[in-house]
Design a protein around this nucleic acid. Structure first.
Lengths: 154, 154
DNA sequence: TTAAATGCAAAGAATTTGCATAACA
DNA sequence: TGTTATGCAAATTCTTTGCATTTAA
């Protein structure tokens, strides 16, 4: 599944494949960079730069925050990583192959990944009526999750 | 547009009506507070705290940024004002009666107010399928505007 | 060898907070 | 008069930048 070439873009990437993308993009492969990618592939779902730093430092204690930020910037430039704002705090990062919309509860902070087709009608309407091409992944869409809504009723 | 003639009165607030809301909420009415409201009613469309500060200082030069932030916080608590993030920079503020969704172009930064019904299908889908109640006003939805899209094609 | 990446310190933007003083109700 | 709000400085949070040194290719 995560092994061979030619898999659909939404499937998971291995660290070695991502490292190859770095090399193809003309970037060097360093310990810190490899560890950032490893944390993105194997770690929790919506890590902040700070959380990635902690993961990286578990294996390379001297890596500095600015290195993680610079690596993430470079990885975004190469199209390997994207970042998303889920709320007022720090940005969260994930692999570009895992890009998706986010719904975040204003009450409890829960983060849902939006089904791929949820934005479809809106994207179609924005395109037809305004000529505006939606890329609705960068900021979360806020609201109130099912649990908090039913609690508010009670 | 909100505030224009011919709309229901809830759409167009005067400074005095907003001041009354402050009093009703148990807050005091100060010079700085009145000037913040005036700037929101009469000033440009999506002011940042900094821009509001400049407007306030035109008439009351000693007002400090922290006062503007504290006033905006209080006005949000009372439901008079809401803030929105249009991009990576400072938050923008407007009257709660003027709440609307925003579409922001990632290329040129242009800000469109989203037609009220653009989010409807998505809100309905999120509610039915996930129980999630959309409040899509807090973060802008990014994309590429008509002008920038046609330029990219050329 | 040499351009790219790093570590560190320091700066930066946006916002918040502590505290003594001022002013609305 | 008694809170509430203000001015000011300082702190916070997240992120970026300058520069001397190290390292991958």
């Amino acid at each position: 599944m995560a092994g061979g070439r030619g898999y659909p873009s939404v499937m998971s990437s291995t660290v070695e494949e991502l490292v190859a993308q770095l090399r193809d993009g003309g970037s060097r492969v360093t310990t810190a960079r490899r560890l950032v990618l490893t944390a993105l592939v194997k770690g929790a779902d919506h890590p902040t730069a700070e959380e990635l730093l902690v993961a990286v430092r578990a294996l390379a204690p001297d890596v500095h925050a600015s290195t993680v930020y610079r690596n993430l910037e470079e990885l975004e430039r190469l199209g390997v990583v994207v970042h998303t704002h889920l709320g007022h705090g720090a940005a969260t990062y994930h692999l570009a192959t895992e890009a998706h919309g986010h719904l975040v509860c204003e009450v409890c902070g829960a983060t849902l990944e939006a089904p791929e087709d949820l934005f479809e009608a809106m994207a179609e309407g924005a395109k037809r009526r305004l000529g505006f091409e939606l890329r609705p992944y960068h900021f979360a869409v806020l609201g109130v999750c099912a649990d908090c809504a039913s609690e508010a009723e009670a």
